[in-house]
Amino acid sequence: MEVLKEGLLKVDPGLLLWTVITFLVLLLILWKAAWKPIVEALDARAEKVRGDIESAEKNRLETERLLAQHRDMMGKSKEEATQIIAEGRSDAEALKNKMLEQANGEAKDVIERAKREISMAKDKALSELKSEVVALSTEIASKVIGKNLNPDDQKAFIEEALTKIRTVQ
């Protein structure tokens, strides 16, 4: 026990008691003034961070769900749009063909009618000419028969008749 009273290994009861007193006073002061608020604040912060992380996770899932939904909708509307465009194109094609056909038919009708009218007019003119020629011939014949014609007159008549015919034609 001699070694505990002197030198490096000396255990001084007074110092020991001072240590205990100092530490206990420090413990009490720090407990009230420092550790309690610090531990509470750190716990509250940890709790808050945990809550924040949880809500962030929840938000992420919700966002993912919405994104998937949105993608789905986008895909659907794209398909729809393609379908609508294709439909419109085929409709337009059909309408174009129909209109072309109609126009062609109408044009043909117009041409047909024109041709018919022309041929009718021609026929009419020809029949008119024929009757005219007949009338003229009758007139000429009556004139020939009615008066003696000298050759010069005859010639003049014929020529007159021919000119008339030509003008009619």
């Binding site: 006073v25 720090l30 003034a33 420092a34 550790w35 608020p37 610090i38 509470e40 604040a41």
Partner: peptide, 19 residues
């Protein structure tokens, strides 16, 4: 002990105030 007090008492206030 004094160093402990000087450091931690103000630190406690700062930690408590900074949410």
């Amino acid at each position: 002990a004094l160093v402990c007090l000087i450091i931690f008492v103000p630190i406690a206030r700062k930690i408590k105030n900074a949410r």
